[in-house]
Amino acid sequence: MGFRRMNIGILAIQGDYDAHAQALNRLGVAHSFVRRPEDLANIDGIILPGGESSTHLKVMSEEGLFDALKGFAANGGAFFGTCAGAILLAREVHGPAQASLGLLDVTILRNGYGRQLASDVHMGKTKLRKEPLEMVFIRAPIIESVGQGIEVLAEDAGHPVLVREGRVMAATFHPELTEDTTVHEYFLKQIAQ
């Protein structure tokens, strides 16, 4: 499947969902916003954006989206979560503990670097290409441990920051807040395969 024929869902409860929409626009890929379970029909993959994971979890549960997303995963749906989205995908969440979809075999610490004053932009190495990747960290979580099936695609300061397990991928930073579409393209390639 070529990118041009895809339609990517973006969870749009709250957060920077529009920044993801703009990244997909730059790649010429169609998107639709997901706010209810029925919005999962006819999408080829879903992006869980940055924002506040506790808010996303609360509204997802009330709307029946939590179970619907698990169903989407069970049917082979592809996921890409950034920051709050990575927290929602993790197997286990700390600081404080909260429920999660458990689609990615990692444990993750919310606000792992500290508060907003610790937010920063780094250049980091990635397996996706030779040149370093610009990584915007905003009150970012830290991936504390990864299971055996996890492929680490980028690290920063000794922590995995971009990981993948089959059709589920997560970044603790925000590629959608840069002009660089490398990470989004990689996600779309996984879907196309």
């Binding site: 709250q14 957060g15 940055g50 924002g51 009150r139 807040l177």
Partner: peptide, 9 residues
Amino acid sequence: GLAEMLKGG
């Protein structure tokens, strides 16, 4: 960026 994260909320 943090303001972006608070959108829609």
